[in-house]
Amino acid sequence: MNELLEALFDPDFPVLRYALVAGILGSIPLGIVGSYVVTRRISYVAGAIAHSVLGGIGAALYLQEVKGIAWCRPMYGAVLAALAAAVVIGLVSLYAHQREDTVIGAIWVMGMAVGLMFLAKTPGNVDPMSYLFGNILFISRYDLYLVAGLDVVVVALAVLLHNKLLAVCFDQEFAELRGVRVTYYYLLRRCLTALTVVLLVQVVGIVLVIALLTLPAAVAGHFARRLWQMMVLAMLFCMVFVAVGLGVSYPTDLPSGPTIILVAGVVYLATAVGTRLWRPNAA
């Protein structure tokens, strides 16, 4: 424990500090967007967007390294791929009578396949695993500013538009009858999801983003009576999961991402089972 605190406050060793700050800052949009994702039951959509990001990153790296297009940074490819995936899934579910889950699955696996192909053809030692599981210990100061910026955007929109987003999530038809432009809010919500996923995939990796988007909100859902309470609780749970995961993984030299995921997963399963045992009649 002492070793952990020393590492945390060592001025010459910012790694652990940055990781913890990134986790705390990232918990804010993850809690908010995660609550939309869990209540709307679109965890699978978030997963597909996250994995299609790999395709964008792979393509951008390939163009940069092999084709010498210097301005084509991985971040641009990631944003483009995530928005494209979000829009395609959104349009399919709005207008086409396809089986939505099949389309989502197709985008999920194709995004990954495209990413792995481009990475294989890109020289240098780019490890796809680093994008899948990320490494919260490689975070730079620049990443922290990025996440802080995301916090401002997501919090501002979630607070200012809370009533309408709640209305559209809970009862889209009634919201439409009250003059709320539901398609606009639907796409806004999907774009917020895509933006959160993209930025945090760069920071903590695809699998950890999906885990922290859904598990804290799902745990919060067991306790919250109102949507905003769920969001606040989800943020707090997310922060705790990251802190505990880092605290366990650092002294034991375990990979931090999987440790955080397991902490979140175990708590989720425990609350799911626990609420069923204690309140057998609860919904």
Binding site: A167, F170, F174
Partner: peptide, 26 residues
């Protein structure tokens, strides 16, 4: 408009007041 009650997600976190206030939108 009052729709049929059965199409709501029983796990959605809203209180009775939250639901009624939706009538004040617009």
């Amino acid at each position: 408009y009052m729709p049929q009650y059965g199409r709501y997600d029983p796990q959605f976190p809203v209180t009775v007041t939250d639901v009624v206030l939706l009538g004040r939108l617009g």
